[in-house]
Write a protein that binds this DNA or RNA. Structure first.
Lengths: 252, 252
DNA sequence: CGTTCTAGAGAACAGTGTTCGCGTACACCG
DNA sequence: CGGTGTACGCGAACACTGTTCTCTAGAACG
C-alpha cells in the first residue's frame, strides 16, 4: 500500500499528489456518469483548474482512463490477496469461496471500474493486446494459487482433463507454465482456466444485467456455481454448501 | 428474416429504408472506430444529410446505438437458431458444440456488436434493467433447448445439483421456469446457467484479451471447455474430443 | 385542387478533447 | 543569498460533438 521509500523530491511529491487528485476526481465522475461521462474539462472544473493544465499530467483523456483501469485492477488484486491471506489455510473449498466472494464484492463496490477493465474500456477502441498491467497477473495469480495449493494438498486431481487436451493445447499450456514460472501441470492449468472463466462469466452476466430477473438471491447462485466448479475440477475435500449468509443479493 | 406482411405504405417503406441505411452506416463506424466512435454527424455526413435530419428517425444518439445492440442480439439469435437446426439431432454433445462454435464465430465476426451487447454499451451509463430485447431471450433459449433436449433424452442427469441448491434458490428457479414457460426442472436450470456462464465467460475473456498469450489455439481450448462443461453437468452420452478442425485461432 | 404533414435544411447553443504561446512562481545551484 | 531554469498553470483558439429550434420545399391525402 504505502510506497517503499522516499526517493522523491518535494516537487515530485506534489506532482504525485495532484496526479492522485486528478484520478480521484475522475473516479468520482466514473461512478456517477459511467465511463463515457468522464470529462477532462469537468475534472479540471472540479479541481479549479484549466483543462489544459491536466495535460501536464496525462497526455490524453484515454491515458487518464487507462490509468484508472490499471489502478482498478491493482485494487482488485489487493483485495484478492488480502482475502486469500485471511481465509483458512486448511479448508481449500472455504478459501476458494472466500476469495471468489471477495472478487464479487469488489466488483459490486467498483462496478464502473470492473466494466472499465472487463468491458470495452470506454476508449475509442479496445486495446487489442492485453497489456499485462501487473494487476491482471496478480489477480489471476491469487485464483491460481488457490488451485495450485489444493492440487499440492492432493485434494484436486485434475488428471481427468488429460483426455480432453489436444497435444498442441497441452504444449501451449506447458509454454504458459514456463512463462509464468509456476508449477501447475497442464491439466491443472486447464482447471484454472475453467474456474477463472466461470467466475468472470458469472460476474460479467450479473453486472451487465443478463441474469434472469427471477433470481433475487444472486449470492446463493454465485456460491453454488463457485463450489460446483471446484467439485467439477476434481476437488475431493469437504465442501459445505449453504455456508454462511451472503451479504449481497443484487447490486443497487 | 423477411417481414411477415406488407402493412406499410410507400411512405413508410421509404422511412424504413432510411432507418436501415442509418443503422448500416452507423454499424460501419462501429466496426471502424468502436462504440465511442459512432458519431451522428459523421453518419449524416456519410449519407449526405444534415445532423438534425437524423432526429426524424432516432430521438438521440443513445437510441441509435441501442437499436444497433438490439439488432446485433437478434442477429446472434438467428445464427444460433440456424446452427441448432443444422446440427445433428441425435448427437447432443455434437450439437452443443456446433451451437457454441456458432456463438463464438458470430462473436468474432461481430466483435464490436458483441462488446456493445455484453460490455458497457458505450452509452453514458449502463442500463440497469436488462430490457428483454427479444434477441436476448431467443439466444439463451437456443442454448437452453440444447440442454432441455439432452435432459429429455435421458443423456443429462442434473440431479447432482439438487444438493447444491438452497430452498430459496430452488424456489426462484421454479419461478423463473414459470416465467419462461419451459419444462426444465430447477436442477436443469442450474445446469443451463452454468453452461451459459461458462460460454459467455470464455468469449468475454477472449475478446477483451484476457486469455494467456501463450494459448494460440484458442479454438481448441474453447472446444475443450464447452465439452467439459457438458460433462460436468452430468452428460453421459458419447463425446468425441478433438472433433474436426477449428477454423478460428485468434481473432484478427 | 387545396390542405396537411413530413423530411430535411440551416443556424445556433452548449459542451467536448486538444494544442499552442505566454507568464510566473518555485526549486535548485553556484 | 541571488540568479536561472523549468515545471506549472492560464487563456485563447480550433475542430469537433449532441441536440434543439425555426423554417421551407414537396409529397401524400381528402
Amino acid at each position: 500500500m504505502a510506497s517503499v521509500t522516499q526517493p522523491v523530491s518535494r516537487r515530485e511529491r506534489l506532482r504525485l499528489a495532484t496526479i492522485d487528485e486528478i484520478k480521484q476526481t475522475a473516479r468520482d465522475q466514473l461512478d456517477e456518469h459511467g465511463a463515457a461521462g468522464v470529462s477532462l474539462r469537468a475534472v479540471a472544473r472540479a479541481m479549479g483548474l484549466t483543462p489544459s493544465a491536466l495535460y501536464r499530467y496525462f497526455t490524453s483523456r484515454d491515458e487518464l482512463i487507462a490509468a484508472l483501469a490499471a489502478d482498478g485492477f491493482a485494487s482488485l488484486a489487493d483485495t484478492l490477496e488480502e482475502a486469500f491471506d485471511l481465509a483458512p489455510r486448511d479448508n481449500h473449498a472455504r478459501r476458494w469461496l472466500e476469495v471468489t466472494r471477495a472478487y464479487r464484492r469488489w466488483s459490486h463496490e467498483h462496478v464502473t471500474e470492473y466494466m472499465l477493465i472487463f468491458g470495452t474500456l470506454g476508449l475509442g477502441y479496445t486495446p487489442p493486446a492485453s497489456q499485462p498491467c501487473d494487476g491482471t497477473e496478480r489477480s489471476v495469480a491469487v485464483l491460481f494459487r488457490c488451485m495450485a495449493e489444493a492440487i499440492d494438498a492432493g485434494l484436486i486431481d485434475p488428471s481427468r482433463f488429460a483426455a480432453e487436451l489436444t497435444p498442441a493445447l497441452r504444449a501451449e499450456l506447458e509454454e504458459w507454465r514456463a512463462d509464468t514460472r509456476n508449477t501447475i501441470p497442464p491439466e491443472g492449468l486447464a482447471a484454472c482456466l475453467i474456474v477463472w472463466t466461470q467466475l468472470h462469466g458469472f460476474l460479467s452476466l450479473e453486472l451487465f444485467g443478463h441474469l434472469p430477473p427471477a433470481i433475487r438471491d444472486v449470492g446463493a447462485l454465485f456460491d453454488q456455481q463457485m463450489l460446483d466448479v471446484l467439485l467439477r475440477c476434481g476437488y475431493q475435500g469437504p465442501v459445505d454448501f449453504v455456508p454462511g449468509r451472503q451479504e449481497h443479493g443484487r447490486p443497487e
